[in-house]
Amino acid sequence: MNDTTINSSQLGANSLVERAKRNQHRFWAFSGLIFLVIGFSLASPNFFQTSNIISILQATSVNGVLAIAATLVIITAGIDLSVGTLMTFCAVVAGVLLTNLGLPMYIGIPGALLSGFLAGALSGFFVAKLNIPPFIATLGMMLVYKGLSLAICGGRPIYFNDTEGFVDISTGSIIGHIIPAFPIPNGVLILFLVAIFASFILTRTILGRFIFALGSNEEALRLSGVNTDRWKIVVYSLAGGICAIAGILLASRINSAQPAIGQGYELDAIAAVVIGGTSLSGGKGTMLGTIIGALIISVVANGLRILSVPQEWQIVVTGSIIILAVYADQLRRGKT
């Protein structure tokens, strides 16, 4: 049968069309973001100011980093509900190491990161080796980290007043030192570095290839002789480590580890992932999409606040945007 013989001109057209199709979602999400920015700029002169843009970016940094962690897990067709409280737990670990034990930053920060990795590995172990569904495993761990954080702190926040330079991790500006006109805070810089790193992992490494394959057809990957359990644990560990980065960013921004916050962040993170076009059924997703998704959430929150819309209604709008974004995606795929 010659039914698949396709000449080269068709071939070129095909790959171009496919490329455009593949990037369509991000295109729409990005247009949505631009549309929101223009809309808010027209509605209020206070919106499109350097200081406000920077504060939007600053507000995106923590949720953005968490959303990156969530994206990695979601592409494997898993879910991580523990990202929010794990973030807090890692902040508390940093607090214990730096403030309670008085250790220097070069031990405290890696220590917090390590705790994130190990915590992620534990979730990964539950999912891969004990066959606990990711939703349940990470729901359980979400509560465990929340309880542990409160127990370690005795319910009170740990402040970082004695650790010099800790606040600068998030709010200082290395870029501002070099180019004074762009005082972009380090937190934002870190967000973009983490995003580039994660995007590189996804698209250029064996781990990334396996993340997509796990989400598309885990059994086929296993039957290709790949140790899928081990790679799953690697993914959850990496996500845990990235949550720890978010924890340090948050602690640095508010100069304290607040054991009571964290729960609820996972939903914002997942919302950003979904708005960014990553499929909850796995196998599809991009870091750029997730960053756009996180920015959309921050822009909406910031813009509505500038327009003096009460916070209650901001939440309603964010919720509606999630549904709208996913509905638009379904329309595009022609499934409705």
């Binding site: 250029r204 064996i206 394959a213 598309s216 059994e219 086929a220 039957l223 002789g225 790949v226 196998g283």
Partner: peptide, 29 residues
């Protein structure tokens, strides 16, 4: 279900069982 990752391309499917051969020591493809 068990042999192919349908949503991935031909080259990825062919390389799936021997991917380590295409990675650097850091796992970069």
């Amino acid at each position: 279900h068990f042999g192919l990752v349908l949503g991935m391309d031909v080259r990825t499917n062919i390389s799936l069982a021997s991917i380590a051969r295409f990675g650097s020591s850091l796992g970069i493809l």
